[in-house]
Write a protein that binds this DNA or RNA. Sequence first.
DNA 1: AATTAGCACTCGCTTGCTTAGAGTGCTAAT
DNA 2: ATTAGCACTCTAAGCAAGCGAGTGCTAATT
Lengths: 343, 343
Amino acid sequence: MTIAPRKQKILAAVIENYIACGEPVGSKTLQNSEDLNVSSATIRNELADLTLKGFLIQPHTSAGRIPTEQGYRYYVDNILEAREPDDGVKRYIENKLQSSFDAPERILKSAGEILSELLSTVAVATTPPGEDARVHRIKFVQTGRYTSMLVLITSSGMVKSRLFRCDFDITPEMLNVFDRSLNEALAGRPLSCVNQPFAQTFAASFGELGLLMPDMLTAVMDACFEASGINIYTSGTTRLLYQSDLDLVSARSILEFLGSESECEKTLGNVPDGTNIYIGRENPSPLLRRSSLISARYTIENQPAGTLALIGSMRFDYKKAVSIIEFTAKTVSQLISELVRKG
Amino acid sequence: MTIAPRKQKILAAVIENYIACGEPVGSKTLQNSEDLNVSSATIRNELADLTLKGFLIQPHTSAGRIPTEQGYRYYVDNILEAREPDDGVKRYIENKLQSSFDAPERILKSAGEILSELLSTVAVATTPPGEDARVHRIKFVQTGRYTSMLVLITSSGMVKSRLFRCDFDITPEMLNVFDRSLNEALAGRPLSCVNQPFAQTFAASFGELGLLMPDMLTAVMDACFEASGINIYTSGTTRLLYQSDLDLVSARSILEFLGSESECEKTLGNVPDGTNIYIGRENPSPLLRRSSLISARYTIENQPAGTLALIGSMRFDYKKAVSIIEFTAKTVSQLISELVRKG
DNA sequence: AATTAGCACTCGCTTGCTTAGAGTGCTAAT
DNA sequence: ATTAGCACTCTAAGCAAGCGAGTGCTAATT
């Protein structure tokens, strides 16, 4: 559906005003604040029409208009034009991100913090899913008489470590056996192969010696499982309680969403490439149906990787958010790609 | 200050009733619900006196009484008697904790979750401070062409790992040099020695070769710093928004407290041994001055170690909380001590 | 045909008032 | 020392009135 230019201008004005002030916008306010050279009566006619078409609603007869989800949607699709952030902001983002330029995880954590800070809202960053990664190498480091650390290096360059404890004295020879046999069996195999059946067959193939392995194998499975999932970094939870226009119910839902690893993973993992905005009921996750989710995928070597996201009420400063999240995602993509290229 | 037995009984009744219902308690309620064989007028006289003495207040003339901080304090000091939790609860706690019986960190994380779940409130668990720990051993694992992992093992048996990245190809020989020289210099030295000056002197003593070390040394410093601080595990943040009697301001403060590493560390690190209750303004941290903090230290080999804590409104079910947190702390102490003993 | 001035209308918010009810403190009797 | 009784205080809830913001409609104007 397209809308006549003036109507569109009025819709934009209502939405931007509402986003800025949080109060229903009336015809007089619009007449004063925008360069619409028409009378308030004309504006009222237009408003009535926009309301009829479902872009705006009136909380009650004697109130101004506020946007509906459909209104926001139109605004986001047809009116909002992406802009780059100010130079100062860009520099700020680049500097902050570069200062954690050693491991992808730290870059992502920083990215979340930056977004949360610049937009005063909750931000989430996920690591790339490692589902199709493979085992590159597994190493062991003895850390105590009964304990060792296992280091898993995946084909995508991720490193996970895990401690394990045995009932018996660990000897270097034993670790050597573990190391050699495990790498022989697993190098190049997908992480998802490293499961319970594998562990059993593997241990069984060693006969007596296999009885010493369960603790070690559990650690291997844990590490592979963790490496094949995604990590989720959340920032700015506190800000949730400072958002004036967020009712308790929405705030709780959002907190619940953030608290549920699986819900986050499902939602943020299935977001399409590029920047995306989900408004209210458009949200895939039921817990966010009263809020807005703005997501941006970052890429590694031009391949879609993980997700950055912002969560807040539907009354969101979409313009600012989109410009900042897009720029951040672009910068994250560059930095992580560079890291990966270097190996 | 001591209080006559009947008065004390009435005070206890008011507080327990208020904790249970969250509403001011009047003389008639008390007469009906407690086995006080006196008239409501008598109770009123007592209430008036308790109010005068500062243990109770009236929100307004025609309301019942609610406890003051002083009231809670008296209750907690003189009336509350510690009880063990029910057998079912005890078994639940023990089972849950034993299932994460491999690393102290996991036990503590579990402990926080258990507390938060059983008491429907926010729970925090801290690892023991490693401040007086020493470097036991440092090991290196190559993870990529330019990246390696450093594994720090402390005298207290803690293991920290850290990735680092160099600008040059890492060779096994180089790691060998790092390994030998670092361990020679640091084994047995306190973690706090591993600081900037040390790094500089150390690098300098290698001349040319020292120029290759900064990234590695930063990682070592980071790991030592992290190992010398405490880790903080928070559970049940979401529940904060479900506590009916917590106003927005307190909820925000608590979230802010939990969000501030330093504030948490300062507060929970300086808690005295055993179980402790801080009510409202008694709290060392200004952010908790409208809330209650219940802390319990756990011990390792009978030495005070880290802290378990509960945070909620002053209207807290202290009786249940104390019994559960004490039992949990005791169990945690046993399990971690056992781990440490085994090495 | 589009715009606009004007006006009656709606409805939420505030204020002021009243009432019911809970709980008190005090007094006089036990 | 306790208690019955009562007057008193104060909140919460309900209701009516007035205000004001903002509307939709109509008739006049461009």
